[in-house]
Computed example of a mutant assay.
Amino acid sequence: MKRSSAVIRRVVLAAAALALAAGCTPDGTGTGTPAAPPSASAGTPGATPTDAPTSDGKPPSPSATFPTGSPSGSPSTGATAPKPLLGDGDENEQVRELQARLRQLDFFDRAPTGFYGTMTAGAVKKFQARRGLPETGTVDETTWRQLLSASRKPTADELKPATTNQLDTPDPRCMTGRVLCISKESRTLAWMIDGRVVSSMDVRFGSENTPTREGLFKVEWKARDWTSTIYHTPMPYAMFFSRGQAVHYSADFAARGYAGASHGCVNVRDRAKLSALFDQVKPGDKVVVHW
């Protein structure tokens, strides 16, 4: 009898060992069901379709300067949407690279500004639709990797072109001295010294009801950080030239482009270029606003 009991005990232990090897143990929930293997929708690194080799047989490589957004700790369960790497309101060099790559693919028709607004979100949505991705308008890791595989690394000129708009023929009053030469026809500002264009950028003007005044002026005073006392909106890098009208950076222009208008000021959408210009311009320098 004792021998029979020992045999039965060995059989039970062997069956238990086989069960452990097969993964049939409780998954920690108390249900006794085996844990499901990670799937592509769970966000497990290496499981997404975008990790597949490209047409040339090479896997897509992440940007050296762009954050990968790789999750830390335990993998996602799929219940939470992928965390966006870039989205509305972001302003940095990664946004500029994003815009330059989208422009290569004809999804973004402006010079990169480095500011993520409605125009950039719209371009991202178009790219996502073309690639069969969820049209979120924000950039998650999957969107970024697909963009990398579809575009090339932007050149310095692509990241910071002289201007989106072609410069107009300078007004004769711009040909001497230090001048902010502003053309309503081409919607550009050219910083000129003795007839030579030092830098240029896109600009936006006032509406019909609040037009930007034309004529010959001079820079009266400057303020690096200024808020409108009338409209209570930020006016960084403001250079005032005509009774409250100024050249200044506009986040709205960066976001919406020519869909909007100023209250009479000359808006600039490239913050970095305007910052450099602000440091060069002095009170007393000429300002010419012309058609």
Rank of each mutant, 00 (worst) to 15 (best):
residue 207 S to P: 00
residue 272 A to T: 03
residue 168 D to Q: 11
residue 219 V to H: 10
residue 242 S to P: 00
residue 205 F to R: 13
residue 244 G to S: 07
residue 165 N to G: 03
residue 168 D to T: 10
residue 178 R to P: 01
residue 56 D to P: 01
residue 241 F to S: 09
residue 162 A to W: 04
residue 159 L to M: 09
residue 291 W to G: 00
residue 222 K to Q: 11
residue 38 P to H: 13
residue 134 P to R: 04
residue 243 R to K: 15
residue 60 P to Y: 05
residue 180 L to T: 13
residue 265 C to V: 11
residue 181 C to V: 08
residue 238 A to F: 15
residue 23 G to S: 06
residue 284 G to R: 12
residue 245 Q to V: 02
residue 258 Y to M: 14
residue 244 G to F: 11
residue 91 E to R: 07
residue 37 P to Y: 07
residue 11 V to S: 02
residue 63 S to Q: 09
residue 88 D to A: 07
residue 145 R to S: 01
residue 10 R to V: 09
residue 60 P to V: 12
residue 195 G to L: 10
residue 134 P to W: 04
residue 79 A to S: 14
residue 248 H to L: 04
residue 284 G to L: 04
residue 203 V to K: 08
residue 123 A to C: 00
residue 47 A to S: 10
residue 108 F to G: 03
residue 20 L to Q: 12
residue 108 F to M: 08
residue 53 P to F: 08
residue 72 S to K: 15
residue 185 E to N: 09
residue 225 D to S: 09
residue 183 S to N: 08
residue 254 A to E: 02
residue 172 P to T: 11
residue 116 Y to P: 02
residue 129 A to P: 01
residue 193 I to M: 03
residue 174 C to F: 09
residue 195 G to T: 11
residue 276 A to H: 09
residue 196 R to S: 06
residue 161 P to W: 10
residue 40 A to I: 04
residue 43 G to R: 09
residue 175 M to H: 14
residue 28 G to N: 14
residue 235 M to Q: 13
residue 44 T to A: 14
residue 32 G to P: 00
residue 212 T to H: 06
residue 239 M to G: 02
residue 122 G to A: 14
residue 144 W to A: 06
residue 163 T to Y: 07
residue 21 A to F: 06
residue 218 K to I: 09
residue 144 W to R: 14
residue 42 A to C: 00
residue 88 D to K: 06
residue 270 D to P: 01
residue 252 D to F: 04
residue 11 V to L: 02
residue 245 Q to E: 12
residue 57 G to F: 03
residue 260 G to P: 00
residue 41 S to D: 04
residue 84 P to Q: 11
residue 146 Q to R: 13
residue 80 T to L: 11
residue 102 L to N: 03
residue 62 P to A: 07
residue 260 G to A: 12
residue 229 T to F: 14
residue 242 S to Y: 13
